[in-house]
Write a protein that binds this DNA or RNA. Structure first.
Lengths: 236, 236
DNA sequence: ATTTGTGAAGGGTTTCACAGCG
DNA sequence: CGCTGTGAAACCCTTCACAAAT
């Protein structure tokens, strides 16, 4: 069997190109780092630190100082030359830039070990995210209460999505169910999806998908691990 | 309190700059995508497909065809013009490039819901990764058997690392324990770490750390979600 | 005819180094 | 003097478009 010419992928072929058009400043690379700065700043704030230099903040966040300053300068001029950045003020400004001053309702689909771990994750409650729904296809799991939320059957997914203005859907199902769940989320108006299932999801334009994939991470580590054993092998 | 000038971060300040020097071809961006191609190819192979074009494979992987060809050309010339790529042969070549023809022993530290989910993850057994150790600080969890592996106490960590040539350590502990666990892994010779705890780990040069962080992903989604509501707001 | 492999162009990100401000 | 904010340079990655191969 040969597949060529016209596309007829097993898992569909909608929405190849992921990102929609940007509206204002903030490059993707910067957006991906702001949450890290935010976490470091919070921990500094709790330690009673009120001011940080780019050098110290960068070190704690694991980036170079120049990069950090470039990132922060995209938000505005919130530092003081000769002094550094005010911790509380920066926390506020980054939160605002990321949209964390709003609140987001999250539904988790699939309540296996992973779904349960996600539901119980403390970082959820903090910073404007609230788990308003847990659903599973397995009737045996329906009715249980996890982190204060009752598990409902996946048949109720659309009802839950409509009742609670859900903006983010988390997919923690087996791979085989993921695309179907995703389609249902999108059809009900969810435009942000966090996918833990090991499949490439197809979504229409305008929907953001982020993927977390254990085995991809492992394979990337394996690549570097292999490199380390191959010390100076190529001919000069 | 003010932190400026000399660095004295709460969580240490070793290992700022992440990546070591590259040895041969294969850019970071390419390495991050090869596992995706591998997965798609495997699924195609199981469907009885023996040959694919870059167009079809790219569609299924969610990238553009030009990017896919550039990526694959870094491995060598393994396609046939006018025809496409042989699925089985490509699977082999990508596996080889990623170092998946070797076997890697993995230890998971922290057997809460997340650790348990990771241990039970099917993608682990496949493709050369084997969980050879599960450890936890909680005596109540020690002795249980998960996915065929007995949970041992974290005091035994160093013993396990030495007995079983462990190359990859997975940290699934609470944030407060992560840096300490990481230090112990590194001291015992582990050079690849996959971190699920929400902290920036400090490691000496030569050690690779990859981070999986739910709340960072959520915050990135929040940013894009916010953008969507702000339709045409800035003055022209 | 079809599809790969790749120079060249284009865009984005990081790093440098210093001007500018407190 | 110290540290931020930022043009300019360097680097990396993606996209285009076409020559080469079957």
């Amino acid at each position: 069997m040969t597949l060529t010419g016209r596309v007829s992928t097993p898992s569909g072929d909608r929405g190849l190109e992921p990102r929609g058009g940007r509206k204002a400043g903030l490059s993707d690379a910067t957006v991906a780092r702001l949450p890290v700065y935010l976490r470091v700043l919070s921990s500094l704030g709790e330690s009673g630190v009120s001011t940080v230099s780019s050098e110290v903040l960068a070190a704690a966040a694991g980036v170079g100082p120049a990069k950090l300053r470039k990132d922060l300068s995209q938000l505005g001029s919130y530092g003081t030359r000769g002094v550094g950045y005010d911790v509380e003020f920066l926390i506020y400004q980054i939160s605002r830039a990321l949209g964390l001053t709003q609140h987001y309702s999250v539904v988790i689909v699939g309540v296996g070990n992973l779904g349960e771990a996600l539901a119980g994750y403390a970082g959820f409650g903090t910073r404007g995210f609230r788990v308003v729904g847990l659903v599973d296809a397995d009737h045996a799991r329906v009715g249980a209460t996890i982190a204060g939320v009752e598990v409902r059957h996946i048949d109720d997914l659309e009802v839950i999505l409509r009742e609670q203005q859900v903006s983010i859907g988390v997919i923690a199902t087996p791979a085989s169910a993921a695309q179907d769940v995703c389609d249902r989320l999108v059809r009900a108006g969810v435009t942000s999806v966090l996918n833990f299932a090991p499949v490439v999801l197809s979504v229409p334009e305008g929907v953001d998908v982020r993927k977390v994939d254990l085995s991809i991470e492992l394979q990337i580590l394996a690549f570097h691990e292999q490199r380390k054993s191959l010390v100076g092998q190529a001919a000069p």
